[in-house]
Amino acid sequence: MGGIQGARSVMRLVVEKLAAERGGRAVFADLSFVVEAGTLLRVSGANGAGKTTLLRILAGLAAAADGNAAWHANDDLVRPAEAACFVGHANAFNDALSVKENLAYAAALSGHNASSQNISLILDAFGMKAMINRSFGTLSQGQRKRCSLARLLLLDSDSASNSNGRGGRAWLLDEPFVALDVDTQAQLATVISAKLVAGGLVIYTSHQAVDIHAANTQEILL
């Protein structure tokens, strides 16, 4: 439990001389940067520059070819599984199950307890409350995307993380604005801003320029 407790305190990401390969071909090398809590980091680069690969490495889903990326919480090292939450191109929802069942499963796997009340509260933030019992396969692409973004809030909604008011898990968002309508883009931008104000750390990739209100921003180009 100590690690999970740590994940709720101030986060810091240190990347040193990171290199990645995909299918035996180097995608990027010698990448070093530091991101502090409360910062919004945008990763940009052409198709195939390794943006998704970078996020997957930071999330602990892929291994780096060289160098390392480490999450710190108050100077303690935290495992990526406890430090970050990754939302990628795939929605990570099963078509046959309802939105609620899918979200409860995702929360339980990351070590959180999601009450139905919590789930409906969070879906409300993305205007999806009415869809809570719909099976995921019957939703439109945009609605699906909203559900997968709702997953982020669910992991932060744990009462313990609210009570200490810190930033919670870092968010790693791979092209979060794709397939969203203008209103939802604005909603997501608001949610990200709120996360940053609370001391969270957000890393995202995007081709579009989206207005996100943030005090500290960083950008790296792959």
Binding site: G3, I4, A59, G60, L61, R79, P80, A81, E82, C85, F86, G88, H89, A90, N91, A92, F93, N94, D95, N102, Y105, A106, L109, S110, G111
Partner: peptide, 22 residues
């Protein structure tokens, strides 16, 4: 296979709990 296609396999892989137990 199905989980790999829809991305939910990543939930298992990114879980702090031991993968073998899951």
């Amino acid at each position: 296979d199905e989980d790999a296609r829809d991305g939910s396999l990543e939930l298992m892989l990114a879980s702090p709990e031991p993968l073998a137990a899951l």
